[in-house]
Each structure stands twice: as C-alpha cells, then as structure tokens.
C-alpha cells in the first residue's frame, strides 16, 4: 500500500507542477488548430526573435565549447598555482542570479562605463546589442561543457596521450587524434546542455538586451512581451516552440548520456 501511496503522491506532484501547466500551454496553442500556431510563429517579430535567439545561442555555444574543452584540459592535465580558484570560479554562474550577471555586464560594458566607452569609441556597441547578449549567455552557460568533460577526461587518464607522443605525435596531433575522440560523447552532451541553456536564457539577456522589439528580442523575451500585450496566441505559440526545442534537446542528452 505504501508503495502505491508514494507513487500516487509522486505522480500528482509532477502532474500539478509540470504536466498540467505545460499541457495547458500546448492545449491553448493548438486549441484553434494548427493555423493560428503557424501564423503566430511566422509573424515578422517572431521570425526575428528566432533569428536573434539562434545567433546568440550559436555564438555562446561556440565560445563555451572552446573555453570549456580548454579549461577542462587545463584543470585535469596541468598543475598550476590558482587551480583551485579557477575550479571554484567556473561554478560561480550556477550560484549567481542571471539578473545580477546582466547588471554586472552593464557596469563594465555600458556606454558610460570605462570599457564600454572605449569599445563604443571604436564603433562596437556591446550593451543593448548582440555582443552583450552573447556575453550574458556565455556567462550563464559557462560551467556546462567544463563539468561534462572534466570527469571523462580524468577517467581517460593521460596514458593514451603519452603513448601518442612516444609514437611521434605533437601535442596538437595527440589532442585531435586521441583526446578529442576520447571525450566526444561527453563533449556532445555538454554542448547540447549548453545549447538548451542558451536558448532558454531569460534573466541576464533581459537586462543587457534592453528588450528592443524587432532588434534585440529573443524568443523568451518575445513570449513575455506578447503575453504582457494580451497577444496570448503568439505568446503560447512561442512558448510551445521553446518547450518543443527543450524536449528535443532533452531526448538528445538521453541518447548521448549512456555512452559517457
């Protein structure tokens, strides 16, 4: 009996927390058929929001992949002063609220801040523009690739890399031919997680983007703005699209996970 009791509680809990809200969104989205859904998502603003989201996410994923693999190799294969500090700093974005991240970026890169002013004089606008949104997203999704790769790199050991060296491989050759294939599943897992996080980011991007409709509006900002303006069909359609993307990435991570 206790077994069934626990199951019922778990199912009810998840139902009210997850299944009902998401289900309702989907129901509201497709309540009037597929037509309004397609129409809402093909409006100029929605398409633009899609493009902004993709641009920001792809840049952020690219940056975090390069940084993530580099940092993981540094943390696992090298010994240097400040290693523990670096290790701790990497997890910082997990602890700091995205809104704080956004405000901090404005403090440094805003038009009236020293660094931002300098960049502005060179014609580079960071805040209220794509670079700032990429920065915010990179920061928020920073630990994901590193934390996916580090344990696998540790488990892999450096025997194979050393063997490659004695066989004549340079550092780069050993990395490309031996290390990278060794961590490929973990890396793919980290990249997918990072992509999901980047697509769904709201808080930090909301602060640094300035929420300029048709300019710096991402899909998540679009959902919020449409909802505030009583354009519920568009809000629900975009929300459903985001949820679908999330489900797909979730399935991808499930596929990648067992192989470590």
């Amino acid at each position: 009996m206790a077994k069934y009791g626990l199951r019922t509680i778990a199912v009810l809990y998840l139902f009210f927390l997850l299944v009902l809200p998401v289900g309702l969104i989907i129901w509201r989205t497709f309540g009037d058929g597929l037509g309004p859904f397609v129409e809402a998502l093909t409006s100029a603003s929605a398409v633009h929001a899609f493009q902004v989201t993709l641009t920001v996410a792809l840049w952020a994923v690219a940056a975090n992949t390069v940084f993530g693999v580099g940092t993981a190799v540094l943390l696992v294969r090298h010994r240097f002063p400040g290693k523990r500090l670096l290790n701790a700093l990497i997890d910082l974005p997990m602890a700091v609220s995205p809104v704080v991240v956004g405000l901090a970026l404005i403090l440094v890169y805003g038009r009236f801040a020293p660094v931002g002013g300098l960049l502005e004089s060179w014609g580079v606008q960071v805040i209220f523009s794509t670079p700032g949104m990429v920065l915010a997203t990179v920061f928020v999704a920073l630990p994901l690739v590193v934390r996916a790769v580090v344990p696998v790199l540790e488990e892999l050991g450096d025997d194979q890399e050393q063997a490659a060296h004695t066989l004549g491989a340079s550092r780069l050759q050993a990395f490309v031919r031996i290390t990278l294939p060794g961590i490929r599943w973990a890396l793919a897992y980290g990249v997918v997680l990072c992509l999901a996080r980047s697509l769904g980011e709201y808080g930090a991007v909301a602060v640094v983007s300035g929420r300029l409709v048709d300019q710096t509006q991402t899909l998540t900002l679009f959902v919020e703005e449409r909802f505030q303006n009583f354009d519920q069909p568009a809000a629900f359609a975009a929300a459903t699209a985001l949820a679908l993307i999330a489900v797909i990435t979730l399935l991808l991570t499930k596929l990648l996970r067992p192989k470590g």
Partner: peptide, 11 residues
C-alpha cells in the same frame, strides 16, 4: 620532446 626521441614505449 618524447616525439623526437624515436623510442617505443609500452605501458
């Protein structure tokens, strides 16, 4: 560097 020594190593 090890890659220039022309040694074979078995672990």
């Amino acid at each position: 560097a090890p890659q220039r020594r022309n040694v074979g190593f078995v672990f």
